[in-house]
Amino acid sequence: MTMASYFQIITNMLAVAVALSAPYIFAAIGEMFSQKSGVLNLGVEGIMMLGAFTAFYFSWAYDNILLGIVMAMVVGILMGLLMAIVSITLKADQGISGIGVYMLGWGIASTLFRLFIGGVQSISGLQDLQIPILGQIPYLGKILFQHNIMVYLALLLVPASWYILYKTPWGLKVRAVGTTPRAADTMGINVIKTRYQCVIIGSMLAGLGGAFLSVAQANMFANDLIAGRGFIAIALVYFGRWEPLGVLKGALLFSLANAFQRWFQISGISFPYEITVVFPYVLIIVVLAFSYKKFSEPTALTVPYDREFKG
């Protein structure tokens, strides 16, 4: 192979990786908000599943992708509200209630799919934008400037969430509530309200991540469409050490590793495919193990806040 064709392959891989990191970025940044405030939401997978179904259903039935995406966010908000009521107000164990939300979302999505669509249907999906000039830059144009609008939305979410968390009074509240909720409460910050806001924002973004997978990636809905991507998003929050930029790096690395393993298999190099397929997951675990720093974790994570608790 010539040098140019190698560049072509690498360009393709990077372009695919950027596009495919979008659903992880949505879901993981959302989960990051939730965890920053002290709530571990393990229901991301279920919320994404429901978001993916909702977005597909409205795009398919009403031929309106924007409506689908908005409805997926609405459904995400509702699921977040449920998670918040159970884990914040009723103080249920966050791990268990998250798994409950996951199973609920998964089950409802599969059932509604059977009732309202019932079989394989597809839509044309969200189209890639043709950005003039920038899109024409050799290599870089394909990598960065030939994606659909949701990819840019996801990439914009990274600096936006950083700004919100670190440069606004609300962001300060979120971080206070997630580390020292009692002190925050003493300072007059409404711990319960802040956590509600964060869990709901997180779930809304998870719904958006699910929507991306059904209307901008698969362009169809199928049972178990999310296939574990919600749990990967949770892992990426730990990977990124609760920082937006870290989450972005993790999402890109994971997507790139996936694109690479597919190319590696297709290139015909004789190698056990089982190892190739798990490579991205192993990579994430290894990086996680070597980069983990305890102090960056929100210290109140998974601890329900009880104002009257005298402990």
Binding site: V16, L213, A218, M220, D224, R229, Q265
Partner: peptide, 16 residues
Amino acid sequence: NIGYTGSFGDTIAAKQ
């Protein structure tokens, strides 16, 4: 060329 997804039901991985 053969590429395996490592799954039976991962629609998105099959598409990718």
